[in-house]
């Protein structure tokens, strides 16, 4: 190692170490929050909460990510906020899971959706990590895609067309698959240095892919 602390090699090594640290911390926090969210989903399933409570959880999670997380992301309190955010989203899954659990093979459908989500996440993360490609060019495209999906969901509330919901769920899987590539490549290429924000982004992608995949599999089962 060079004695000069500002040599190119030292800076590159430092940058690689920092990237590895962000990646390691992100995956560690992500795995713990996923377990926590699953536990909260189990609790809400057993408590048999209604869709109103689920909606309140979604509002709470949105408020946390909008107003609280930006102020706490650089402190230890940010970790508590991520747990609250993921816990609320997990708790809000109760009515959806109960709907599928009431079917004859509902448990099997949920397990298939969980396994499918895990395969998609691991494959896309592995792809972004091995290719080391910078997918940050996707930013505008992906955010525009989410806006289109939300607008289509608003239309879906009024139109009540099963075909439209199917298309929305398929689009959600594609857009959030893109977000997994985008978020992972931003960590690798130094675009995201805060593991709390990185965890929140990847968690949201996994959550959305899981719920949409469950709806698509449920539809195929019918």
């Amino acid at each position: 190692m060079s004695d000069n602390p500002f040599s190119t090699r030292n800076i590159t090594q430092e940058s690689a170490l920092s990237t590895n640290k962000v990646l390691r911390n992100t995956y560690a926090l992500l795995s713990v929050t996923l377990i926590f969210s699953a536990v909260m989903a189990m609790v809400s399933t057993m408590a048999n909460i209604g869709y109103g409570a689920s909606l309140a959880c979604s509002f709470g999670a949105l408020a946390l990510i909008w107003f609280v997380l930006p102020r706490t992301a650089n402190s230890g309190a940010g970790i508590a906020v991520v747990f609250a955010f993921t816990g609320l989203l997990g708790f809000g899954l109760g009515p959806i899971l109960n709907h599928y659990l009431s079917m004859a093979n509902g448990g099997e459908l949920i397990a298939t959706a969980m396994g499918g989500t895990a395969i998609i996440f691991l494959a896309l993360s592995g792809y972004a990590l091995t290719t080391q490609r910078d997918f940050s060019f996707l930013g505008g495209f992906l955010f525009a895609g989410v806006i289109v999906v939300v607008l289509a969901s608003i239309a879906g509330i009024f139109l009540q067309m099963p075909g439209l919901w199917l298309a929305i769920n398929a689009a959600v899987i594609l857009v959030f698959s893109g977000f997994i590539l985008f978020d992972t490549s931003r960590i690798i290429n130094g675009g995201e240095t805060n593991y709390i924000l990185a965890t929140t982004g990847i968690f949201l992608s996994i959550y959305n892919i899981f719920t949409s995949l469950l709806h698509l599999i449920g539809f195929a089962n019918d």
Binding site: L55, S136, F137, G140, L142, A144, I147, V150
Partner: peptide, 25 residues
């Protein structure tokens, strides 16, 4: 309630989308 949530998500997303549309490489 779902409609209000969707509109709130849009209000949350639009500035971020604008940022990325103008700053994406």
């Amino acid at each position: 309630g779902y409609l209000v949530l969707a509109v709130a998500i849009l209000i949350f997303l639009i500035p971020r989308a604008k940022h990325w549309l103008s700053n994406s490489p």
